[in-house]
Amino acid sequence: MQITNQPSERHVLAVVVDNEAGILARIAGMFTARGYNIDSLTVADISEDHQVSRITIVTNGPPPVIDQIHAQLERLVPVHKVTDLTEEGPHVERELALIKVVGTGDKRVEALRLADIFRAKPVDTTTESFIFEITGAPEKIDSFVHLMRELGLVDVGRTGIVGMMRGVVD
């Protein structure tokens, strides 16, 4: 079976780990050493005692490569659980972005109108610029950024994707 002949698939992996120094570097190093790409990476403390974190990784590859990534992540000692949200079924993905748009006159009015349609909230305003906060699926943010390019986009900051299984899950 040749991996290169299989189509690449996007997968969202939720990795629960001990919150210890160096774990993120070990995971990133595993990806680097094997030539895998990380499209998005987020980390958050998820326990009251700050002992456990959740790392959400978005990556691409043919099914055998995704299986290999999953298996190699599970072998790392401080990893408690690896869940491939893409394989497990219906899940929710969200991202947050801050988008700075500079403009006056009609472009300013249009930027505000589009922000309202996309439910983006102005979090900083001057007479010549806005910083909008938008949350949603990555495709929604991509669309908003694309439209803002024509209206004076000057900067974009994105958090990366977080995801969670829908419904009641073990």
Rank of each mutant, 00 (worst) to 15 (best):
L112F: 04
F118M: 10
V168T: 14
T56P: 05
D39E: 15
P63N: 01
E139H: 11
I3W: 13
I66W: 12
F132E: 03
M164P: 00
H91M: 07
T126V: 00
A44V: 12
K121L: 10
M164R: 09
A97W: 06
P62W: 01
M1H: 15
Q72F: 00
D39L: 11
H70A: 03
A14F: 11
V101G: 05
E139D: 15
H146A: 14
N19L: 07
K81R: 15
D155C: 00
E133Q: 13
R119W: 01
I99C: 02
E110P: 03
D116Y: 02
V79K: 03
D106I: 08
P122F: 04
D124S: 07
L76T: 05
S8K: 06
D67Q: 13
T86K: 06
I3V: 14
R54A: 06
G105H: 11
D18M: 04
K140Y: 02
P63L: 01
H70L: 02
G167N: 00
V169I: 11
E128C: 03
F130Q: 12
T104I: 13
I99N: 01
A25Y: 09
A44H: 04
I66S: 13
E133G: 00
G89C: 06
M165P: 04
A120T: 12
I99S: 02
S129W: 11
R166F: 09
D116F: 02
A97V: 05
D142G: 06
R119N: 09
D45L: 08
V92P: 00
D155L: 01
F144D: 10
R149Q: 15
G35W: 02
R108W: 07
V79Y: 11
